[in-house]
Design a protein around this nucleic acid. Structure first.
Lengths: 334, 334
DNA sequence: ATGAAAGCGCTAACAT
DNA sequence: ATGTTAGCGCTTTCAT
């Protein structure tokens, strides 16, 4: 059943059917009703490929993330999908993995699909900020279609960014820890991404502002695996710390497991703060104080702006920064 | 840059370019090389819409799940996406929510996209097995394209199912609990889905086989929220149980929190078994014995068969059942 | 081995 | 208000 069949059945031309389907005002109420009736009873659906060919768009947004089974990214994708659906856009999902080569390849495959815009979820795509060539492929993509970053920031034409102010909130967290008497705060991270670097900056600035030394020993990079972190900490007998600022809840829970193994009481003898306010944070014992980085808000902002940009409007922000929110639970005494 | 431009530059017809692009053997090695060179240096990519229009396929699979922020579904989608990518299929993702109406609407929107096949993730789509009309929209979809269920089973032409043998493994878990002396086993669930019903059957059969009574009191349906479950259990002072079989880790962790609040020692005075072997199960304390329902295996099986079906091969299974695996941790004494 | 041309189903410019 | 028709860029059949 195509537009010709419908036209024939309704006794009109295909142009009229097309007008009806696209809700053009240049059709009389009467014919419109007749055509609509035929469409209804014949179960006609316009061929999206033909339409795409003509308009050079299928109203599809490419969403790329390193790993959809990561809770944070899954949440981001969930919000993006919902918001985009409200605007009648579809999402095609690419999980690129974490390797540079695959990230580049995925972007190219996605571009070949003639998507209307590209969303990159995860600060991993922003690189570590040092090496420009690392993000070259993103700037190239932006030459063809608008590119949006969730939780990442890279400069460039046609690139729009939304992120949590990780530096500020990590500064606040660290400062609270200092205020409540912590002397040796361990910074625990699992990556050198843009966002991890922001968190580190906030941590260091808080230390400096409190006239604390910034010690290399107290900055640890490890694998985001609860047991791995616990065992690693257990093995590092030289390490002396009375609190932990982690860039992810998984790392924080690992620290909690370490405390349990060493019979260290939390929060009295050790404070822990996680990041992302994930399901882990209420599953562990004691329940974890964590930072909510407002991914829903970021995603909604980005989608709303994307639609405006795709419609050619000028009324949007090139960047959105939202403040993080400290969710106080039981692993801190503030 | 389109096929005409490439043809002109290479001094051949568009048919030849098309043959080269599609790796047809009916092109001389020499022209092939020349055309390939032009394609390379001009960055030509075939227009997927035009190709889709001609072939009536864009090599795209529709993946639908109620909620991608659910860990289980996120994992399923992750595995599906990876496997499909290996076969050069793209995924378009729809999150339908849990309401019947939206599920039906989402399927129809997806069908209108002229996807090559549809994957339904989550036993929620299989209904509760009682009401046929609830799954009518799926059988209708199957009239147009093959439909695949991850963790669900509904009969019908062109519908293919992959699932974990939830009944069997729940039977085993319950039997172990009985063997280790548990008398009053609470069955905790959050839905009446196909899979939840299978688990219930396994639970009941185990009780019957052990000549235990099957008590209505001990079958509880609640919300999948850790604190909610804890508080609900705390409020039900009448309830007497010495172990819990939960259909999801979140529920199980809720039971654990209840035990902690009541100072009940786990596993000595109360055993708990979760389901899905999620990140929660190693985050909580003590760590949770859980059932791994082998979602990766199910997804891979389904995708492999899907490809065969799309290629017209007959060498596939209409159904895949994989056994669940009990991951023993610290909340049981078996 | 290669080319010419029909056809896929739609949108939109133009004609009436 | 409605119809006619030219693309959109590809695949494929049929000639050569």
């Amino acid at each position: 059943m195509n537009i010709y069949d419908v036209a024939k059945l309704a006794g009109v031309s295909i142009a009229t059917v097309s007008r009806v389907v696209n809700d053009s005002p240049r059709v009389s109420e009467k014919t419109k009703r007749r055509v609509l009736a035929i469409i209804e009873e014949s179960d006609y659906t316009p061929n999206v490929f033909a339409r795409g060919l003509g308009l050079d768009s299928m109203k599809t947004i490419g969403i790329m993330c390193p790993d959809i089974s990561d809770e944070y990214m899954a949440h981001a994708v969930s919000h993006l999908e919902h918001r985009l659906r409200a605007y009648e856009y579809d999402c095609i999902l690419y999980c690129s993995g974490y390797e540079q080569k695959n990230k580049e390849k995925s972007v190219n495959l996605l571009l070949a699909k003639r998507i209307d815009a590209l969303v990159l979820v995860g600060s991993i795509y922003a690189g570590d900020g040092d090496d420009e060539s690392e993000t070259e492929y993103i700037r190239n993509a932006a030459k063809q279609i608008p590119v949006f970053m969730i939780n990442g920031k890279i400069p460039g034409d046609n690139i729009y960014c939304g992120y949590c102010d990780d530096k500020q909130v990590t500064y606040e967290v660290t400062t609270e820890l200092i205020r409540t008497g912590r002397k040796r705060i361990l910074f625990l991270s699992d990556s050198y991404s843009y966002s991890a670097n922001q968190k580190l900056e906030g941590y260091e600035e808080a230390l400096r502002d409190a006239a604390y030394p910034v010690l290399g020993d107290l900055k640890l990079y490890t694998k985001n695996d609860i047991h791995y972190v616990r065992d690693m900490l257990l093995a590092r007998k030289d390490l002396d710390f009375d609190s932990v600022v982690a860039t992810d809840d998984g790392l924080a829970v690992g620290a909690l497991k370490y405390a349990a193994a060493r019979k260290i009481t939390v929060p009295q003898d050790m404070c822990v703060v996680g990041y992302n306010d994930s399901a882990l944070s209420v599953s562990c014992e004691p329940e974890l104080t964590s930072v909510d980085n407002q991914v829903e808000k970021i995603c909604n902002n980005i989608v709303d702006d994307m639609i405006k940009i795709l419609q050619g409007s000028e009324d949007f922000e090139k960047e959105h920064s939202v403040p993080g929110k400290i969710i106080k639970r039981c692993t801190t005494d503030f």
